[in-house]
């Protein structure tokens, strides 16, 4: 493969994306942004699969990405539904307010 991007670059990009997503999940208070950060993390995983698939020239990586894409779509559908329910019941999207389940 001519002029191919080295596999390390791809993986480092995936790592950076994953970390950004994780930081977003940890620091964001608005649950919509938490969900978005979660999507970023999923995409980072997908990127890692694609990179690995092209490194070993296997189709499995891309198949896995399609699976993750489907999963993410389903997750967002359910997640947004839940967020709407939550907003209706508590009139807020701040997850710090919703901490009733403590021991």
């Amino acid at each position: 493969m001519m002029g191919a991007i080295p596999v390390e670059h791809g993986l480092i990009l995936a790592g950076i994306l994953f970390s950004l997503g994780l930081i977003g999940v940890l620091t964001r208070r608005n649950i919509v942004f938490v969900l978005m950060s979660l999507e970023v993390m999923l995409n980072a995983c997908g990127l890692a699969f694609i990179v690995a698939g092209s490194r070993w020239e296997q189709a499995d990586g891309q198949i896995m990405f399609v699976l993750i894409l489907t999963l993410a779509a389903a997750e967002v559908a359910v997640g947004l539904g839940l967020i709407i329910q939550m907003y209706r019941r508590f009139q807020t999207v701040d997850i710090n307010v919703l901490s009733e389940l403590k021991g």
Partner: peptide, 10 residues
């Protein structure tokens, strides 16, 4: 340790 804060669990 069970605080009820989602980010603590994450």
């Amino acid at each position: 340790t069970q605080t009820g804060y989602l980010r603590w669990y994450v």
